[in-house]
Design a protein around this nucleic acid. Sequence first.
DNA 1: AATTACGTTTACGTAAAGGTCAATGTTATA
DNA 2: TATAACATTGACCTTTACGTAAACGTAATT
Lengths: 128, 128
Amino acid sequence: MDSRTYTISELSKEFGITTRTIRYYEDQGLISPGRHGRHRIYSRRDRTRLKLILRGKRLGLPLRDIGDIIDMYNTDRGEAGQLKHLCTRIKQDRAMLLQQRAEIDTMLREMDVIEAQCRSALAQLETA
Amino acid sequence: MDSRTYTISELSKEFGITTRTIRYYEDQGLISPGRHGRHRIYSRRDRTRLKLILRGKRLGLPLRDIGDIIDMYNTDRGEAGQLKHLCTRIKQDRAMLLQQRAEIDTMLREMDVIEAQCRSALAQLETA
DNA sequence: AATTACGTTTACGTAAAGGTCAATGTTATA
DNA sequence: TATAACATTGACCTTTACGTAAACGTAATT
């Protein structure tokens, strides 16, 4: 049943964030690790959530939104209402991601142009 | 010479941000519009900068970084040192963008899986 | 028994990115 | 000329996302 667990410092090292940050995420309801006494114990699922949180952050999403999204994708997909809701959500999120990707592509192309200019200018200088 | 200009409210409407935000960007040295008396006048170049700022924001970059980047790509590419510096910078930025895009692709694929599960679950419910 | 390493809560601090007045200036229009 | 409609500066306020420090608990070394 894959019951590997992690301590807070293990996770903080692995992901390059402070323990403070991880506790803060818990405070904001984004993770809820188990406890052994008062010590936190992180399951594999918790680790995954953490990874998703950091991914969301890299996309520039606020923590609130990240929490909502993760919860959305994690709630019991029992009844039809929930399922349809999730489908709608997926459609939205996908659109957002596609747009971001398009923007990244635009920037990459623009950078190609600049780099080409840059290189030819350098070549000019060298032959001069 | 394409001397079309814009008022602050025109830009705020066009980009869906408040005038306060635009002034804040100026305060942080990200734009420096001309003045007619004390009123700000934005050139086409200013508008472009604003567009770049918002793009950077959507990528989750802090304003400082955005400023640095834009300046980098805008300074006079005169001497070889500058040019090489810019080339290095481009390489870095490109790497970052590619990684972001890769992450987006990962998420998109994961969403495909979830959506498929979701749809089949819905189909099950309907036939039941 | 003391030190070290790791963990905990509580609380205050802070930087970034604006929001929200308030008081005032300027321009166009009725 | 009065009244909107739009600008400006300045000041203070707020939220988000942590940093930092204090004071303490626990468990393993030395």
